[in-house]
Nucleic acid binder design. Structure first.
Lengths: 225, 225
DNA sequence: GATTGTTTAAAACATCCGTTTTCATGGAGA
DNA sequence: TCTCCATGAAAACGGATGTTTTAAACAATC
C-alpha cells in the first residue's frame, strides 16, 4: 500500500463516522474496519483517539484558516483602511467556508464537526480549536466590529453567535431538515439554495433594532472598566 | 424510601448528566451512583436505557405540550379568528418554554436535550418526539403561517428552523458562551437577558426581505469585485 | 397478617471499548 | 545489502458498559 495511504483512509472514514454519530459513539473498530486498515494503525499513526479527532479537525481548519487569512488580506488591501461593509465580510466568510470542504464535497460533515466541537462535553476540543485557530476569528470579529460601529460590543458578540448557531444548526442538521422539507413541500434543497436564503436573514438579524431597555433585568449592573 | 422516590431521583440525575455529556457518554452506573440508587433500578423501572431517555424528554414535553395548547387556546379565543401577530406568537412560545423548566431552574438542560435530540445519530429520538408531540408544533406553525401571509411557505419553513437553530444553539451552549462573554466583556449574562436580546433579532430575521432571485442560478459570483 | 410492589446489595453475564503487544511481510532509502 | 518504516494479522490486556439474576429487606394495601 502506498505511503501513508492508511492515514488518509483513516481520516476520510473517521470524519464521516464522527459527523454521523459523534465521537463517543464511534469506535476505533468502526473506523478501522470500514476503512479496511488494521486496528492498531490508529494508535500507531495518531497515538490516541483524541489525537485522531484533533487531526480530523486540523485537516479542515488548516486550509480554512490559511484561505480566510488570504481573503481578509485581499479585502483589507482593496478597501485601503476604509471599513469593509458587513455584507462583504459575511459573503467572504461564506465563500471561504464553502470553498474548503468543496473538494471532498462534505460541507455537511464540516458543519457537523463544528457543532460537535461546540457542544462537546468538557470542551477540550473547543479549547484546542481556540488555541490553534483563535487568531483568525479574532481578526474577523475585529473587522465586523468596524463594520457595525453603532452596535454595542456585547450586542454584536451575541448576534454573531446567534447567527453562528443558525448556520451550524441548519447545515449540520441538513439531512434531517431536508427530510422534513421535502416531505412537506416536495422541493429539492441544495446547500447553495440554503446559503441564498440565509443571506438576507443574517443581515437583517445583525441590523435588527436594539432590544428594548425597559425589560432589562433589574440586577446589579456590572460596570465595565 | 418513599414510593417511587427512586424514579424521580433517577430522572433528576439522568437529565443533568445527559445534558452535560450526551447520552452515549453517560452510563447507567454514572446515573445510579450519583443518584444513590441501585444499578438495577433503571432497568426495573424503565426497562432500558433508551426508555429512560424518552422518559426524561416526556417529563419536559408533556407539561410543555399541555401548557402550550392552553396558551394557544387562550390566544385564539382572544383574537376571535383574526390573525395573531407574529410577535405575540413568538412571545407566547418563549413564555411557555421559560415556564416549564422554571420549577427545576433548568432551561439550559431542556435546551441541551432538545439540541441533542435534533443532532442525534439515527434520529430515533427525533422520530419519537415528532410522533408524540408533533400536533402542537403543527398547530403553532399553522398560526405562524397566518401571521406571515406574504412569506412563501418554503421561506417560512426555513426561517423558523433558522431561528430554532439560533435559540437551541445559544441556550444549549449557554455555559460555553457565558465563559467567552464574561472573559471578553466582564459582564454577567442571564437567560432573561439573552431572551431580551433574542427577541428583536428573531423578529427581524423572520421579516427579512426575500432572497434575491437573481443568484438563484447555478452559481452566482460571490465575492464583490 | 399475607400479599404485592419497591428498593437495595452484590454478583455475574456477555460485549464492547481503547490500547498494547508480538510476529511477519514488504517496500524505500542509506 | 541492510536498515528503517509502514502495514498487516491476531491476540490479549484491563476496564467499562447494558443487562440480568438472586437474595434480602421494607412499605403499603387488601
Amino acid at each position: 500500500m502506498a505511503q501513508s495511504d492508511t492515514v488518509t483512509r483513516i481520516l476520510d472514514t473517521a470524519e464521516v463516522l464522527f459527523a454521523e454519530r459523534g465521537f463517543a459513539e464511534t469506535s476505533l473498530r468502526n473506523i478501522t474496519s470500514k476503512a479496511r486498515v488494521n486496528l492498531a494503525a490508529v494508535n500507531y499513526h495518531f497515538g490516541s483517539k483524541k489525537a485522531l479527532i484533533q487531526a480530523v479537525f486540523a485537516r479542515y481548519l488548516d486550509p480554512f484558516s490559511e484561505r480566510f487569512h488570504s481573503a481578509l488580506d485581499a479585502l483589507e488591501a482593496r478597501y485601503e483602511g476604509r471599513d469593509i461593509p458587513l455584507e462583504v465580510l459575511l459573503e467572504t466568510m461564506a465563500t471561504t467556508v464553502l470553498e474548503v470542504p468543496a473538494e471532498r464535497n462534505s460541507l455537511k460533515v464540516f458543519m457537523r464537526l463544528l457543532g460537535l466541537a461546540y457542544s462537546q462535553a468538557q470542551g477540550h476540543l473547543r479549547r484546542y480549536i481556540q488555541h490553534e485557530y483563535g487568531d483568525v476569528f479574532s481578526r474577523f470579529t475585529e473587522l465586523v466590529r468596524r463594520a457595525t460601529p453603532d452596535l454595542p460590543d456585547a450586542e454584536r458578540f451575541w448576534r454573531l453567535h446567534f447567527m453562528l448557531g443558525t448556520v451550524i444548526f441548519t447545515l449540520s442538521g441538513l439531512d434531517a431538515l431536508r427530510d422534513i422539507a421535502e416531505k412537506d413541500y416536495h422541493q429539492q434543497v441544495s446547500v447553495r439554495d440554503l446559503v441564498r436564503r440565509l443571506r438576507p436573514v443574517v443581515v437583517a438579524a445583525m441590523n435588527a433594532p436594539l432590544p428594548d431597555e425597559k425589560d432589562m433585568e433589574p440586577h446589579a449592573d456590572t460596570v465595565a472598566h
